[in-house]
Computed example of a mutant assay.
Amino acid sequence: MRVLHVITGLEAGGAERQLRDLVAHHRVTAEVAALTKPGLISQAIQSLGVPVHHLGMTGNRDLRVLMPLWRLIRAGGYDVVHTHLFRAGLYGRLLARLAGVPAIVASEHSIGEHQLEGRPITGPVRSLARAGERLGHMTIAVSTATARRLERWGVPPSRIEVIANGIDPSAFRFDPEVRRATRARLTIPPHLTVVGGVGRLEPGKRFDVLIDAVAAVQDTVLLLVGDGPERANLVAHARRLGVAQRMILTGQSSQVPALLSAMDVFAAPSQEETFGLAVVEALACGLPVLYSACPALAELPPGAAPGARWVPSAAGAYGQAVRELAGTGHERLAPPHAVTHYGIDQHVNRIEALYLRLHEQRSRSQGITPAWGEQR
């Protein structure tokens, strides 16, 4: 089976990292097309031996990307086109449908109640997203909460399949030597408590709450992994509070597991998430976790993640929680059931079973005998 993944970009976001892990464990022949500029995840995917096609899109209205994407889909002989993120979902599904691709799938990674990929959901955005959905055969919701949002948008339940994100727990296993080396590289003294966050630096992630929390607690450092449009505002806010010297911004990084090992407390103050991948990764590293929204945990039985604690997204609440954890001796926790529940193998198995089912359905309806091609 030949699969083309189409994604808006390959910078180090949650959807991009999820795609990297998916293709790393695929049992099908996979290629990736990125509409916009390459990034760290592009390099990681290519290092796996998976071809990545960079199409050079420069903005939302740069329709020049359509022709090279059309040529790629037409020439590739793909059994499945699988899109990720808004623009890729819109253009990729349209061109795959025009090219007669047997199975067209889209993963919905970033739809919130009020925002889509960090931007407000307007009427035109909702209309475009709904029109794009009709061009595919199935939409994967990464959580039940995401599926409910899609249904409220008018997507029939029969066109939605809930397949939770997956992680490779071994990739995030805590390593004390890596911790020491990473903290030394970042010049963090051993006695300081490191409060960490991972994600795109955008207003919806509410990383300003963590700056306020660290400002209120002595002997703490804030370590933020990621980049985005809110970076300058976060730096300015830290300077106003006099804690800029206690904040480290790594930018995009391919070393997320090492940076998690360097942390003592993981904090996710975002009030709106579609899954909460970074929270599960932090739990895999044995970190105590503070979070304000995480469908991945909300949809599991109580006790599935004893090291995780819900905290309202407010500076005072996070400051108090950090203060309580700062005196615990920074002991690592055993990865909880939530981590094994979201193992990458189950994720890949369900994705590939969906490909096969859709392809067989389309082939039968068209009187075609499936030909799967080589596996990678």
Rank of each mutant, 00 (worst) to 15 (best):
G226E: 01
Q361E: 15
F275S: 03
T340S: 13
A317F: 11
L94N: 03
T83D: 04
L234W: 02
I121W: 06
R64E: 07
G251T: 12
Q18M: 04
T340G: 04
V311S: 07
E117I: 12
A215F: 03
P124G: 13
L259A: 00
G228Y: 01
D219V: 13
D62H: 08
A15Q: 05
G123M: 15
L201F: 06
L241I: 12
A326V: 05
V101S: 08
P176M: 12
R119K: 15
A15L: 08
E299P: 00
I45V: 15
A12I: 07
V279F: 04
G59A: 08
V178R: 15
T274M: 10
L19V: 00
I344A: 06
V6I: 05
L4S: 04
I7H: 03
A88R: 05
H82Y: 12
V52T: 09
V125P: 02
I140Q: 05
G76K: 01
V209F: 08
H25Q: 12
L22F: 04
A106Y: 03
R2W: 07
E151M: 13
A215G: 08
D21M: 11
A215S: 12
L210S: 05
L260E: 01
L85E: 01
E117G: 00
L192V: 15
T250L: 08
T144M: 09
T144Q: 14
E117L: 05
R159A: 13
E113D: 13
L300W: 12
P288I: 02
L249K: 00
I368W: 15
P288R: 00
A268P: 00
H137N: 10
G89T: 09
E113W: 14
E117F: 02
V3P: 01
V311D: 04
D212P: 09
L186V: 11
R246A: 07
A334W: 08
S110K: 10
V80W: 03
S313V: 01
V28Q: 14
A147K: 06
E374F: 13
T187H: 15
D219K: 12
E374T: 15
T274E: 08
L356Q: 14
G226W: 05
H82T: 00
W153S: 11
R74Q: 09
A106L: 07
Y318W: 12
